[in-house]
Amino acid sequence: MTADDIRPDDDSEVGNAGDFEQYADLGATTENAMEIAETSMDRVRELVPDETLADRIRQKSVHATGDPEFQHLVRFTGATEDEPVVAGTRAVLDERPIVTDITMVEAGITGRGHDCPVQKAIGNGADLAARTGMTRTAASVLELDRQGVYDGAIAVIGNAPTAALALADCIEGGTRPAVVVATPVGFVKAAESRKRLRRVTDSHDVPAITNVGRRGGSGLAAGLTNELVHVASDVRSGEVELP
């Protein structure tokens, strides 16, 4: 869902654009909302270990999907499970760009707790897609890569398997994102695209967070990325110390 999907009519009680933008930003801010969010996460912690940074990603995956079993589907590419979380947290602290595949993932990235520029790939590479017949998402990833956007960025793919495959090609070609978060969803090439991305990121020392199976999606990708932001906030406050 994007801001346009919930934009009020002229006779709405929502007063102005500022009110709407505050409402549209994801995340709990009021006392009641904070209580709900904290209670929800407390229940998740009863189901998922709470010992490592990787556990925080597992917890968020359960929180985002409502499925305690999803914790067993998350995969981490790196020397340790914590490595991609550390890399992503450092990228947030360094205010590196967050680059999503589609609008829905972009809309799900929190606007609080970081100063990273956030942009979507879709909408770029239209000429390449028309000329070659490849998907718009794959073409958009290739076009942004041609511009050097993905180097040092937090690369997030939540919807399109072909975008994940295109990103794998870019990494094989020398592109080096700070971290990859990839949870494309579906019955065609989704699991295969994540498997290839794991293989490529592992062989080229690019930290990555993915999952196995057909499930995934934009909400999950945004949630996992937001958890990197939350870890970064905890580092700033001194609650977490990075290795």
Rank of each mutant, 00 (worst) to 15 (best):
K60C: 15
V105M: 10
D127L: 06
T135L: 01
R199Y: 01
N124I: 02
M104D: 12
H72A: 08
V62A: 09
L47R: 11
R198S: 06
L144I: 03
S140N: 02
A232S: 08
K189D: 15
D202G: 07
S237Y: 02
H63C: 10
Q59T: 06
P177C: 01
R75A: 08
V14E: 12
R196L: 01
R45A: 13
L220C: 05
D11N: 09
P177Q: 04
V185I: 14
T65N: 09
R75V: 10
R136S: 02
G133P: 11
E13Y: 13
N226I: 02
I98N: 04
P177M: 02
F187S: 04
R196W: 00
P184V: 12
E192T: 06
G18I: 15
G15N: 12
D101F: 11
E192M: 02
R112K: 12
D9Y: 09
T135Q: 02
A163Y: 05
E143W: 02
V235H: 08
H63Q: 15
P68H: 08
D169T: 01
G88D: 06
Y23S: 10
A24R: 14
G152K: 12
A221L: 10
A138W: 03
E35R: 05
A121T: 14
D202V: 05
G27E: 05
V206H: 00
H63I: 13
A208Q: 01
S12P: 14
Q22C: 03
D145H: 03
L242M: 07
